[in-house]
Design a protein around this nucleic acid. Structure first.
Length: 173
DNA sequence: TCAGTGATTAGG
DNA sequence: CTAATCACTGAG
């Protein structure tokens, strides 16, 4: 039972509160130009859910940066923060329902800024489609580990009740 | 605890 | 145009 299957549209076009925890234990696959494929188990995610969620970038409305979040689930939302770090997110939910799952950790690299630097994520991945891209996708290997939940990191500015929502999901390998 | 660092955004 | 903000990290 080792068949790894690429996640399809159905997986991502669900509420981010299902998509984010379901990503834990899945495998992030990247194919470079020399055909080398690198795989990393996803170990930590956070859910950002719609315009009401003050921690979600879409709470400020649709802008050039957040546009992709309004598309259907399965796209990649990448943005730059603190002058140094690219953040990798997978868009979730239906069209015009802006949600995204932040990839906070992968096997071997904890921290959203460190992992994108390690695997080479940048602006060129903005809008990429995980269900059809030749260079990045997610596989289900049948690994469904128990995971923990907790409040999201770095979003205290969002205030109540958003800053305390237990929308961070993680395992320790 | 705190500074580095620059894209993004709102506002004039 | 200006200024504030920021889903982070590493050093102390």
């Amino acid at each position: 039972m080792n068949t790894a299957e690429r996640l399809t549209r159905d997986f991502f076009v669900r509420d981010v509160l299902y998509v984010s925890p379901d990503l834990i234990g899945k495998t992030l696959a990247l194919q470079s130009e020399d055909d080398l494929i690198r795989r990393f188990i996803i170990t930590e995610t956070e859910a950002y859910r719609g315009p009401e969620d003050k921690a979600c970038h879409a709470s400020k409305g649709r802008t050039a940066r957040t546009d992709v979040m309004y598309q259907e689930g399965g796209k990649i939302y990448v943005y730059f923060v603190y002058g140094m770090y690219w953040m990798l997110n997978f868009v979730a939910g239906a069209k015009d329902n802006p949600q995204a799952a932040l990839i906070r950790g992968i096997e071997g690299f904890n921290g959203p800024g460190k992992l994108t630097r390690a695997i080479g994520i940048d602006k060129s991945f903005y809008g990429e489609d995980l269900t059809s891209s030749k260079r990045i996708w997610v596989e289900d290997t049948g690994f469904n580990p128990e995971f923990k939940t907790g409040p999201r990191i770095g979003i205290n500015y969002a205030g109540d009740p958003w800053k305390d929502k237990p929308w961070r999901y993680y395992i320790e390998l």
